[in-house]
């Protein structure tokens, strides 16, 4: 029993702890309850409210961010799990010249949203989709973006917006 306790202590179990997050190229030192998800840390502790909370259960995609370049759901990721990972949110997504990302401009041009609540998640997911090379057809875009739901039903225009950027050569294109 005593051994188990000292083992636990040595492992560093804690109900709250300092967490260092790297978000959009900046370091942040936070002190967080172990329950805090990456989503809540971004929104409530760092004020980065671009990332949206839809279902908070991994089903809607509104909370999509990149961790080490891969798209993930920030609502089912603990903030503590992201220590040492590079996190990118919609606020950190830019074109190589620092301006708006081609996807952001394409979404505006194609009117690819109505209420806009799902949009940051859609754009983060689409940016990863382009990197993965999965935007070669409308079917692929639909299939590999199926984890991003849009309650307003803007799907047709979302697909068009993504395909436009893909056709122009992806994220590096100046559309």
């Amino acid at each position: 029993m005593a051994e188990a306790l000292s083992q636990r202590r040595a492992a560093g179990f804690a109900p709250e702890a300092p967490v260092e997050l790297h978000v959009n190229g900046r370091r942040h030192r936070l002190h967080l309850d172990a329950r805090v998800t990456l989503l809540d840390a971004l929104r409530d502790s760092l004020g980065l409210t671009g990332t949206k909370k839809g279902c908070d259960q991994g089903t809607c995609g509104a909370c999509t961010v990149h961790a080490d370049g891969r798209r993930v759901l920030s609502c089912l990721t603990l903030a503590a799990q992201c220590e040492g990972r590079e996190v990118t949110t919609i606020e950190g997504l830019t074109a190589p010249d620092g301006g708006p990302h081609p996807l952001q401009e394409s979404f505006v041009r194609h009117d690819a949203f109505q209420c806009g609540y799902c949009t940051p998640g859609q754009i983060m997911s689409a940016a990863a989709l382009l990197e993965e090379g999965r935007a070669d057809s409308d079917e692929d875009v639909r299939e590999f973006m199926s984890g991003n739901l849009c309650r307003c039903g803007a799907y047709t225009n979302i697909v068009a917006a993504v395909r436009d950027v893909a056709a122009a050569g992806g994220a590096d294109a100046s559309v």
Partner: peptide
């Protein structure tokens, strides 16, 4: 519910815990 969190780097450490 509240819980405590720890990250491990060794397989035996994980199993023993």
């Amino acid at each position: 519910l509240p819980f405590e969190y720890a990250r491990v780097t060794g397989v035996d450490e994980a199993v023993n815990l």
